[in-house]
């Protein structure tokens, strides 16, 4: 082979192995999901083409789908407010510290690095109605609090799981904001101070505009991820009690691997991804309108 030709081939030898492995395991199966959503299939036997029948069932007959989507929306509303506000406020406060900054950052981030399985089960133990924190509440004299079934009461189970996921999540958001705040040009603060701005005005006119791209990123991530979340709900309640915490991901999981309705599960996956894509563009649009993002 002449050297010139060889030089043309080498880059492909470098990049194609990674591309092929990923395409075979992720992209091609993902595309096949789109096709298989049109089939009645149990994962083993011959699949039978049934057109849009799966989607018809999802939209007209299956009540749990609607319930799951509502729970995902509730999840979204919780996660687009609580961890963002908490993360932002703490990031602002920590950024004002000097030497202890690293220490705080390191501790706040710990819940994010541990396994969701463990975080979920630790809190399941704490929320155990007989042996958990209820014992502490009883001892402190909070009779009503000590009788709450945190994960057993359909009215609060979803909020209880969201609380735990928040415990693991907000530190990550805080570190993102903190990193962005540290990259804001310090001369802007000096200029604001020369103009007589107080701390609050600095926050509104320097800090927030300075990290607007990170805010937009966090919003997009939150919105999409809220419809994909799985681990904490599956580990802590698995959709129960009485479907009170059923979300799209757990419902898909049950259809695919418990009921062996692979075709139907695929149709649900298509809906789930479709919602994510729609929300992604909606969010992009809003962010641009709101001045959070440049073009």
């Amino acid at each position: 082979m002449n050297p010139n030709k060889k030089r043309k081939i080498v880059p492909y030898l470098f990049i194609v192995p990674a591309f092929l492995l990923h395409a075979c395991i992720v992209t091609v199966p993902a595309l096949s999901t789109l096709v298989m959503s049109l089939f009645d299939w149990n994962g083993m036997n011959q699949a039978a083409f049934i057109g849009l029948q799966n989607f018809k069932e999802i939209f007209t007959e299956d009540k749990i789908v609607r319930l799951s989507v509502i729970h995902n929306i509730e999840w979204l509303l919780i996660f687009i407010t609580v961890p963002l506000i908490l993360g932002f406020v703490v990031a602002i406060l920590v950024s004002q510290l000097r030497r202890s900054q690293m220490f705080f950052r390191t501790v706040y981030f710990v819940p994010y690095v541990i396994s969701a399985a463990v975080a979920g089960k630790i809190w399941t133990a704490y929320m155990n109605p007989y042996y958990g924190l209820n014992q502490v509440f009883a001892k402190l004299g909070f009779e009503n609090l000590s009788k709450v079934l945190w994960l057993g009461n359909p009215k609060i189970a979803l909020a209880a799981v969201a609380f735990v996921d928040n415990w693991h999540w907000w530190g990550f958001i805080m570190v993102l904001f903190l990193g962005a705040l540290q990259q804001v040009d310090p001369t802007l603060y000096e200029a604001a101070r020369v103009d007589g701005a107080n701390r609050f005005q600095e926050l509104i006119h320097v800090s927030i505009p300075g990290i607007r791209q990170t805010i937009a990123f966090v919003l997009i991530m939150t919105v999409m991820w809220s419809f994909l979340t799985f681990d904490y709900v599956y580990i802590m309640t698995n959709g129960g009690p009485a479907n009170a915490t059923e979300i799209m991901a757990t419902y898909i999981y049950k259809n695919a691997f418990v009921k062996y309705r692979a075709g139907y599960a695929n149709a649900l996956c298509v809906i789930q991804s479709g919602i994510c894509i729609l929300l992604y563009f909606f969010q992009k649009y809003v962010s641009k309108k709101g001045g959070l993002e440049d073009d």
Binding site: P29, S32, L228, C269
Partner: peptide
């Protein structure tokens, strides 16, 4: 890419 888009076909 969402995990659930490819976990079912990968499994089977």
């Amino acid at each position: 890419l969402p995990t659930f888009l490819y976990i079912v076909p990968d499994y089977f």
